Amino acid sequence: MTAAPRSTDKPDFPWWLVAAGAIALFLAIQIVLNDLYSQIFTIVSKGVGITVFVTLVGFALATAIGLLLAIMGLSRFLVLRQIARFYVEIIRGIPILVLLFYIAFVGAPGFVVAWNFVAAPLIDAGLVEPMSVRDFSLLWRAIIALTIGYSAFIAEVFRAGILSVDAGQVEAAKALGLSPVQRFRFIVLPQAIRTILPPLGNDFIAMIKDSSLVSVLGVADLTQMGKVYASGSFRFFETYSIVAYVYLLLTVGLSLGLRALEKRLRRSDEERSGGGD
C-alpha cells in the first residue's frame, strides 16, 4: 500500500525562520553583553555603508543597462539584436571575480590611456591635467565590474518579462495608433513588471552577497573590515560570525520582504481576475 500524497495546499510552518531568529537573538545578546563581540560589531559595521552604497549604485546602473540590452535584444534591427546577444552571452560566461580583476587591472588602466590620448590637445594646452590610474578609485572600479556583470543577467529578466505580455494587447495598442514608446510605457512595462519584480529582487539580494568580492581590491566594505580585524586579532570565529550575521540580517530581511510583495501581487491579480469573472 502506497502512502497518500501529502497535500501542499497548506504551507509548512516556517520552523527555519524560528531557528534563524533564535540564532540572531543569541548573537544580538552576545553583541550587547560581550565586550569582544561588541567591539567586533562596532568595527565591522563601519563597512556596512560601503556595502550598501556599492549594491545600490551598482544595481541601479545594472538595471538601466539591462533594460537597454533587453530592448535592443527585442529590436527589429538585426545588428542591435546581435550586439545585445553578444554582450549577454559573453558577460554571463565570465565569473564575477574574474570580471572584477579584469575591470580593475585591465579596463581601468586602458580607460586612463584612452582618456589621455583623446584629451591630449587639452592637456598640452594646460587646460586639463593628465589622468593617472590612481585617479580611478578602486571603489568605482568595483562598482563598474558589478554593474557590467549583473546587467547581462538583468537583461534576460527584462526580456522574459517583456515577452510574457500577451502579443494581442500590443497589437491592439498598435491599432489604436500608439507609438512604440507609448506601447512600451503604457501597455508592456506595467504588465511585465509583475513578472520582472521577483527575479529582479533575487538579483538585488545576490548583488548584496557578491558585493563582498570588492574586498579583494581593498575596498573597506563589510567583508574587508572583518578581514582586517581578524588578521590582526586572530579572532576568526567571532569576527566572521559577526560578518555572516550582518549579511544575513540584510539578505534574509530583504528576502522576506520580497516574498511578502510577491504574495501581495499574487493576491491582487487573483482579486482582479475574480472581479473580471
Rank of each mutant, 00 (worst) to 15 (best):
G93R: 09
L100A: 12
I71S: 05
L139V: 04
G232C: 05
F184C: 14
I208V: 15
G66K: 09
V246M: 08
A24I: 08
F101W: 10
T251K: 05
V79H: 11
A104Y: 03
V48N: 03
R266L: 15
I65V: 15
T51Y: 01
G201R: 06
L222C: 13
D124S: 01
R266Q: 15
L178C: 10
S268T: 14
L256R: 03
A220M: 13
Y240N: 09
L67A: 12
G276W: 15
D9M: 09
V106L: 12
D221L: 12
A152P: 11
F59P: 10
L17A: 11
Y102S: 09
D210I: 05
G276C: 13
L197G: 05
E238K: 02
G177E: 01
V252Y: 07
A244Y: 07
K174T: 15
V32I: 13
L36M: 13
R194Q: 11
I43A: 04
A119I: 03
A145D: 08
F41M: 08
G253R: 04
S7I: 09
G49K: 08
W115F: 11
Q30T: 08
G126P: 01
G218R: 04
I154E: 10
G93M: 07
A152T: 10
V246P: 08
V252G: 00
F59S: 12
L249S: 02
L254Q: 04
R185D: 07
A145Y: 06
Q224M: 10
Y245L: 12
I144D: 00
Q82V: 14
P121R: 01
G149C: 09
A4T: 13
D166H: 11
E238N: 01
R183F: 06
Q224R: 10
V32C: 09
L25N: 10
A206D: 07
R259P: 07
G161M: 02
T55F: 11
L258T: 06
L222I: 12
P198Q: 01
G47N: 12
P198L: 00
G226Y: 07
V246D: 07
S137H: 08
A24P: 08
G168I: 02
W140H: 07
K263R: 14
P180I: 13
D277V: 13
Y37Q: 13
G161T: 01
